[in-house]
Simulated scan of single mutants.
Amino acid sequence: MKTAVVTGASSGIGAATARLLAEEGYRVICAARRLDRITAFAEEIGGEALECDITDQRQVDLLAEAAGGSLDVLVNNAGGAIGLEPVAEADLDAWQRMLQTNLIGTARVTKALLPALLAAEGVIVFVTSVAADGGYEGGAGYCAAKAGERSMVESMRLELYDKPVRITEISPGMVHTEEFSLTRFGGDQEKADKVYDGVAEPLTATDVAEAIVWMATRPGHVNIDRMTIRPRAQAAQHKVFRG
């Protein structure tokens, strides 16, 4: 049986991806910070729950131990955005948290699991964002974190060009999940809802998960360098049809 690790698997894109991989017959290790939530979810899909804060080296080491010596798929999904203030009013503690999760935490997990991925001739899917494409008002901290993650993806693909591992990236646009915008606005439901005002059909977590699983299950000689996926209503980061 093939093994997959999904970080940030307790909700949103991570949970949807873990569910689909389990349906494809993978042994899925569902990693997330909230043990109670991830335990219930893993039981539901027949996966394995593991408490893992990707900013904690000890917990990441335990994740590598759970994965074992051979890992077919790693989905680096844990991360997120905090705040939407201009640079002049930046909450630099929030910036630090975003860099610690989206960039440094992702690097920590990738480094720890890379030997097992090489052993299995596996694939890594990095879940970045269209925020990595360029800045937008209020998004400097998150854009910087995701652009940094993309730089890591590009560097790794060059560094490992002669090794049996695939380095892939999916870059989602507007995805309406239960927590992303709510986390960004500190639990303010009204502000979170306004992000999607008038957008009839933003992407769902399952839309993105289906693309991730497709990328991860291509033949071993096929590498999907980067996939950008947006709702039809979002022509570009700054241009969204709101009916």
Rank of each mutant, 00 (worst) to 15 (best):
N102K: 08
M98R: 04
A90S: 14
T39A: 15
I38H: 00
E43I: 05
V75L: 03
S70F: 00
I82H: 02
E43S: 15
E48C: 00
E23R: 11
C30H: 03
A67W: 00
L103F: 12
G46Y: 12
V75K: 00
F41V: 06
Q96G: 03
G105L: 10
A107T: 07
L35G: 01
L62Q: 09
I54E: 11
R19L: 13
I29W: 01
E48I: 04
N76P: 06
V28G: 11
L63M: 06
L74Y: 01
L62G: 04
L84Y: 12
L84Q: 15
G47E: 08
G83L: 00
L21W: 01
G80I: 02
D53K: 05
G25S: 07
P86E: 11
I54Y: 15
R33C: 04
I38W: 10
V87N: 09
T106N: 15
D91G: 01
E23Q: 14
A94H: 10
L21C: 10
T106P: 10
L20D: 13
L20N: 12
R108Y: 14
A15W: 09
R33D: 06
A94M: 11
R34K: 12
L74D: 03
A22N: 07
L92C: 14
L50M: 09
L35V: 14
G14F: 05
V28L: 09
D56R: 07
A42D: 08
G105P: 02
E85M: 07
G80D: 11
Q100C: 10
D72K: 04
I45G: 15
I45V: 10
C52E: 03
R97D: 13
N102L: 08
E51R: 12
I45Q: 15
E23H: 08
V87K: 01
D72H: 11
C30G: 06
E85L: 12
T39G: 06
L20E: 15
F41C: 03
I38V: 15
A32W: 14
G83R: 01
A94K: 12
E89P: 10
G47W: 08
G68E: 10
E43K: 15
